[in-house]
């Protein structure tokens, strides 16, 4: 087999990875240097390190095409999905071939790049990401009609995959704020005409850990890999513009 594709370009990449060993409660930065072709993704780089240099480096992914939000991490400070970052784009975007990789600061680190997502999700669970009390369909065996126009108002908020990139970027404190993605999960159900239980919902949304904690910095919208304008939905909530569409 011949290598005839002229576009191929190989880079030497330095990854400085923040590591953590729970057995010794020790944290350090480890540098790996590896050869990478231009369209390798960062998940491929991590796998290459495991296969060729260091099988102990712990990280996690699942679908590896930006649909599940498992491989989120910070690269040179920016929270992103490692499966969506290509080597040549990273070099172009960050203007360097050295990358500092660290876990998201949204929950305790379990090992290396793996954080305790169960704990991170506790904040989403608190906003009750389901219909608490559904409106009954008009008749048995029917769907509840929702026009495309009505759906359009909140459909973008339903696209959230809980990757927690926005939560990692958010400048508001994790102690007091449930976080931008938790807010989105809540806002969806306030806007969904099938939810009858609005009172409980509004109490959480406008409560002590709710939208009042947001400083409107828009960092969340800036980093969202799904390009959801999170801050826009939070702003709508602050202005009280998320209740039912007037017909």
């Amino acid at each position: 087999m011949s290598r005839e594709n002229p576009q191929t370009q190989v880079f030497m990449i330095n990854l400085k990875i923040r590591r953590f060993d729970p057995d010794e409660n020790r944290s350090w930065i480890q540098k790996y240097t590896l050869e990478a072709s231009r369209i390798m993704r960062f998940v491929d780089l991590l796998r290459k390190i495991n296969d060729e240099q260091d099988p102990t480096l712990a990280w996690v992914s699942s679908c590896e095409h930006g649909q599940c939000g498992t491989c989120s991490m910070k690269v040179n400070g920016k929270p992103l999905l490692a499966c969506e970052l290509l080597v040549e784009n990273a070099i172009y975007y960050f203007r360097t071939d050295t990358f500092y990789i660290e876990p998201l600061n949204v929950a305790p680190v379990i090992r290396d790049l793996i954080v305790d997502f169960t704990k991170a999700y506790d904040r989403v669970d608190q906003v009750k990401p389901y219909i608490i009390k559904p409106v009954l369909p008009r008749s048995e065996g029917d769907e509840f009609p929702i026009t495309p126009q009505e759906l359009e108002r909140y459909v973008n908020a339903t696209r959230c995959i809980n990757c927690f990139c926005c939560a990692a970027a958010c400048i508001s404190s994790h102690e007091t704020f449930l976080g931008p993605n938790a807010m989105l999960n809540s806002i969806v159900r306030v806007m969904d005409p099938r939810e009858q239980e609005k009172e409980q919902r509004l109490k959480i949304l406008y409560g002590y850990q709710g939208v009042c904690r947001c400083h409107s910095s828009r960092a969340c919208s800036f980093v969202c890999p799904k390009e959801i304008d999170v801050a826009h939905f939070i702003a709508l909530a602050k202005e009280g513009r998320i209740t039912k569409l007037k017909s």
Binding site: Y130, I131, P134, P137, G141, D142, E143, F144, P145, I146, T147, P148, E150, L151, V155, T158, R189, D192, R194, E195
Partner: peptide, 20 residues
């Protein structure tokens, strides 16, 4: 029946102009 089960519990199916 299972589609309706999902719809009644909040799945965000795409809709036609009549809302179905």
């Amino acid at each position: 029946e299972q589609i309706l089960w999902l719809e009644n519990r909040g799945m965000h199916f795409s809709r036609d102009q009549t809302g179905k």
